[in-house]
Amino acid sequence: MSSHAASHPQDAHSDNPHADYIGDKVGFWFFLYTELVLFGGLFLGYFFYHMKYKEAFHEAGSHLNVFMGAGNTVVLLTSSLTMVMSLTALQKRKKGLSLLYLGMTILFALAFMVVKYFEWGAKFSYGLYPGSEILQSSHSDGVIIFYGLYFVMTGTHGVHVVLGLLALSWMFVWVWQGKIHADDYAYLENVGLYWHLVDLIWIYLFPLLYLVA
């Protein structure tokens, strides 16, 4: 019975910040559920309009660069691998290795954003963005909706990648300083969970936007 854990939840002054390991993770998982539901709303919109504008989605999706999309998928998957490697290394008390993997994760996240930048740039140069004259005057309703969804979904995902980048960098500093170590790694684990969630969302976004053409 974890009565000591129950009587002193961690607060600003607790000398034992690791009072309730399971509680920390349960709490963070609840946050991940809210993220899932948030993206779920976007996916709902996608399926709703996919049924309505099947042909137009087909046509609009074929303008996306499958090579870049698949490349980015590999980048994110690899970053997920280095993330778990970093956690395992820390658990095995190899701080240097853990930092190396964490740094690689951060680099892959940056690489993802760079590819995204070129992709979005290409769309903008063709006038395929929400509110553009070209899109609204010379394309059908379905294509307008597809690009609306494309930018909203990849944009929301991109915001999460950037937030993940910040969190990862923060963790890097804390592991470096020894605030996170082999006996107290709930923060690193939770940030890792968040990063995998970002990966998870992309696993669905990639086929829906790039391949169902």
């Binding site: 309703d141 379905g142 307008i144 909706i145 609306g148």
Partner: peptide, 17 residues
């Protein structure tokens, strides 16, 4: 986003519902 960027998802004149 509909108000600022005209993504069209809720706007019937752009094909939204």
């Amino acid at each position: 986003m509909e108000r600022t960027l005209q993504i069209g998802i809720f706007n019937p004149s752009l094909g939204g519902d």
